[in-house]
Design a protein around this nucleic acid. Structure first.
Lengths: 142, 142
DNA sequence: ATAGGATTGACAGGTTCCTGACAATCGAGG
DNA sequence: CCTCGATTGTCAGGAACCTGTCAATCCTAT
């Protein structure tokens, strides 16, 4: 990727960072047969099992319908399963299958290595500062 | 937008920041009838007139074909024009029309206000640090 | 209890973006 | 000169994502 950002617009710099990091992450993930979006859902459902489709969509930053299609695909791939929600007949609880859990464990080191390598030259303070800046953008925009 | 990022993965935090900032930018832009991608191309071509389609695609972080479609649409909208390149008969030089230049001038303040408001609570040093971090991600990934 | 509003998962249809090809053209090396 | 590899703009087809909509369900207030 080229992406030198001559626009002088921070928003596009953030976009370029996202594209580059996604590309690096994708390289590590598709050795394990996972897409970046699938990995995102896997991590999310792993941290908070029982999430509904709509919740997954919101927290992963995509439309409800896109989350639906994504989850359906992962269900077909045997990574996820939907269970009926006893407290709400509209929704379904999304859970990891044993295969999904195993896959998440398998890719963990590779993912962590990618991000660690990318940030290797930064101090803990710098990393925290960058996260704070990014988090602030998330909170105050949209 | 929700986007609280419980994944603990910086890459997704960057994605969330991009989505949020893009949404804020889009709100400001569509009052002037521009999309975020169109604005990006406008700024890029303004800074370096005569860019080819392929170059625009690379620098804006999209496929050659997507840049082609984007530029075609903006040409139809009277914002851009393609001129033959005397030194290379394969390529065409993309230039702003007077309308395109005017539109860019018109939206400038709104765009700058959005980004300034987002970063208002950060010092110059913090802003520079965030840009350095982002730039490093762009350089070392992809 | 029940009416009204909001939310859910899913379907249909459309937009955006991408990959894979193609001929035309350029540039370097015989 | 001429060939060969690389690059350009563009077309065709598909993948990913979104909006709009619907019935079903939940929640709140009267």
């Amino acid at each position: 990727m080229d992406l030198d950002d001559p626009t002088g617009c921070v928003t596009f710099l953030v976009r370029h960072a996202w594209l580059s990091m996604r590309s690096a992450l994708a390289d590590a993930l598709d050795e394990h047969g996972l897409s970046v979006q699938q990995y995102g859902v896997l991590v999310l459902v792993s941290k908070v099992p029982g999430r509904t489709v709509a919740e997954v969509g919101r927290e992963v930053g995509t439309a409800r319908q896109s989350a639906n299609e994504l989850i359906s695909g992962m269900e077909r791939a045997g990574l996820l399963e939907r269970r009926p929600n006893p407290n709400d007949r509209r929704t379904q609880q999304v859970h990891l299958t044993p295969d999904g859990e195993q896959r998440l464990i398998d890719v963990g080191p590779a993912v962590r290595k990618v991000e660690e390598d990318l940030e290797a030259s930064f101090s803990d303070a710098d990393r925290a500062a960058a996260r704070a800046w990014l988090h602030h953008m998330v909170e105050n925009a949209g």
